[in-house]
């Protein structure tokens, strides 16, 4: 059976279609999920896409966090059972939901950053990064105004000690993120938040590379190894 990967649409989501396309290119079945339906439709994994959910009112992700669908998603993700990838606004939603530590705030430059960005993948033990090699540099797209990752020194030290920093920006820190952090995972490795956009780097025609496909291929491999097909 093909793996079914849900992609959530909130009012203001922008990259849900691109995320669904990336899921399909990797060979999984994208399943549209609606923020207002408290129904995960039995999907094997979920992508929270980029955009400006609820207009980014109050704080980015602060209102999306309380969507009916999130009421189903949060406990399933927290238990380690449901793999979730939050991209950009999705990362902000995961942080607001306290599924990932820290917060994402206004870029230090106060400018929206929109560019191709090299990342170094540092944690390949997650459900979403198993297809990369540790230290691999990948080229994806960064486009965000509130991508500055902040957390207390204690939290940062804890994340580093547990190897949960998923990826860092290579070269100049584009948004002031503490310790150059572009993405991280929870302790189970099923929840991953990433500020840049792997789903925009899956096809030579439209992306700066196809390096982003690895996230979607990785979850397929992960799900395949977890649920072997019945003989």
């Amino acid at each position: 059976m093909t793996a079914r990967v849900g992609v959530v649409t909130f009012p203001g989501s922008l990259d849900d279609k691109d995320a669904a396309r990336a899921v399909a290119l990797a060979g999984a079945d994208p399943v549209p999920l609606w923020h207002d339906d408290a129904d995960l439709k039995g999907v094997d994994a979920v992508v929270l896409p980029g955009g400006f959910s609820y207009g980014d009112y109050l704080r980015c992700g602060a209102i999306a966090r309380f969507a009916p669908l999130m009421g189903e998603l949060v406990p399933a993700a927290r238990s380690g059972a449901l793999p979730v990838l939050g991209i950009c606004n999705g990362f902000q939603i995961l942080a607001e939901s306290q599924l990932l530590p820290g917060a994402l705030t206004r870029n230090a430059s106060l400018r929206f950053v929109n560019r191709d960005q090299v990342l170094r993948v540092e944690n390949t033990r997650t459900a979403w990064t198993g297809g990369y090699t540790e230290g691999q540099e990948i080229l994806v797209v960064l486009k965000s105004g509130e991508g500055c990752y902040v957390a207390s020194e204690e939290t940062l030290d804890h994340l580093e000690a547990e190897g949960r920093v998923l990826a860092r920006y290579v070269g100049e820190d584009p948004n002031g993120s503490y310790r150059g952090i572009a993405g991280l995972s929870n302790e189970h490795g099923n929840i991953v938040g990433l500020m840049p956009h792997p789903e925009h780097a899956v096809e030579a025609l439209t992306g700066p590379s196809t390096d982003g496909l690895g996230f979607f291929a990785s979850i397929l491999t992960h799900l395949g190894s977890r649920t072997p097909e019945p003989a």
Partner: peptide, 13 residues
């Protein structure tokens, strides 16, 4: 208010 240890680039500007 942002906690004192959190960078406030808007305030700085």
């Amino acid at each position: 208010m942002l906690k004192p240890e959190i960078l406030d680039p808007q305030g700085q500007a």
